[in-house]
Write a protein that binds this DNA or RNA. Structure first.
Lengths: 256, 256
DNA sequence: CTCGGTCGGTACGAGAGCGAACAGTCCTAA
DNA sequence: TTAGGACTGTTCGCTCTCGTACCGACCGAG
């Protein structure tokens, strides 16, 4: 539960690289599907303003109530929105990766963060001022359309998780959650302790141990001290509840 | 679980009254806070297009996948968005009343309904074509701002319900749900069977009987064959979980 | 090499809620 | 008046998850 060394206003600039300063950085920025669409809509204005930042697990993007000055497009990373309960336990409300942007809900809502927002899977994010994003979508119909779709997609995910939390077991929710991560990052090896997973699923660490043990026994995953290896995706999909298919369809988008 | 006689495309016109045809109907239309804001922004264009319709419990607003041609502003009624699970059970994702509009998420998303949408508390709704709404918020900054706030407020509610479903008891969720209804309708007497409540909370009917029995024993409510009377709101607020305060603050809005 | 912290595995009793069933009450239509 | 349906109350055994605790394995710092 530590590792929260970096707050939104204090992300050290030495972690930031100008996207254009090295040609090879332009390619990773395009990993984010939404940013790609926005760049296509207004490249000359946006591209020079994009910065890339690297963050690790549980690093803080926004605290509750923060005024949002910048939004983040995950490239190979994943960001969680979390609720923190009165008893101190946490639970993930949404997980967003390369399909979306972090800070949109605050931006369209009222300018402040409605939830604690932390890294779930460490990696790179593209960073953009809200002013630049604001300028783009108020002046560009296509950009607004893509942003609204991303927002609507977030609503779908949160809705389905409300259902899933109410009705499905920890095992099903774990399988669902792992598949969602797998869809959003490139690679089968994840740095995730069981404590970290518990803080996202809103369950006990001991409960995750049991559920992860079941997934190991069917050879779906392998676990070793903070290193989770997704060994058999198909097996995971057999363990998952109906919620995954609904969120996956939304993640894939209307294209296919 | 019956009573679904009326679908979106077949709401009989004899249930519809032109808002302007009788002066006294203008007042009820103003019961919806959001519609009030929109009418203030563009009254000459919008007001002639508003119709009032009355619907009863479980009447259908949208089916899953419906193309949205009209949006609805609840006046003294409440509308539920529901997920229907594979086993046939249902669970409420959001409840909206006089503070918001039904169909906005579909409108901003992609034009089709993402969830089954049914009446929760019967009563009147103001009805408007999506074309009219679309015209208003694309041409009027203030209207767009109010709509975005309503959408953001919906996200807050759904998020908190995801938390609540995961961590709180049926008793807490029932108290929370009843208070939310009480905030949205005028009056202490509700027509709600325990079966109806169960279909919203995603619990068993027998579970609702037990929880409602507890609320009766502390004199918070009285129950009598489909008639629920909220007897002591303060007592309900003592039984509720932390989630209610969060959703209530959002319902009240930034004004106070 | 050793120590202290991190991490995963396991156990226990307790409680909430489930699915399924049945009984009793109330209302209404024939 | 009666029959049937709608609605509430209650029970049973069972599963899941909780909170809490303890242990052992692992790992990096000194």
């Amino acid at each position: 539960m530590k590792g929260a060394q970096v707050s939104q206003s204090t992300i050290p600039s030495d972690k930031t690289d100008k996207a254009l300063s090295a040609g090879r950085l332009i390619t990773p920025v395009s990993q984010n599907r939404l940013l790609n669409h926005l760049l296509a809509a207004d490249p000359d204005y946006l591209l020079p303003q994009v910065r890339v930042v690297k963050l690790g697990f549980n690093d803080i993007i926004y605290e509750y109530g923060d005024t949002i000055h910048e939004v983040f497009f995950p490239l190979d990373s994943i960001v969680s929105s979390l609720a923190i309960m009165e008893d101190g336990t946490t639970i993930e409300i949404s997980m967003l990766g390369k399909e979306s942007v972090i800070g949109l809900s605050a931006l369209l809502g009222g300018g402040t963060a409605r939830h604690w927002t932390r890294m779930c899977i460490g990696g790179s994010l593209a960073r953009l001022s809200t002013a630049a994003l604001d300028h783009t979508f108020t002046s560009n119909e296509s950009a607004l359309k893509h942003l609204m779709h991303a927002y609507s997609s977030l609503v779908t995910q949160v809705s389905q998780r409300a259902v899933c939390n109410a009705r499905h077991t920890v095992l099903e929710r774990l399988a669902c959650w792992l598949l969602m991560i797998h869809d959003r990052v490139g690679g089968d090896n994840l740095r995730l302790t069981q404590e970290a997973i518990a803080s996202r699923l809103g369950a006990r660490r001991a409960g995750i141990t049991v559920a992860a043990g079941m997934l190991q026994s069917i050879r779906a995953i392998e676990y070793r001290r903070g290193q989770l290896h997704i060994r058999d995706r198909d097996e995971l999909e057999r363990a998952v509840c109906e919620c995954y298919a609904i969120m996956k369809a939304d993640f894939d988008g209307p294209k296919r």
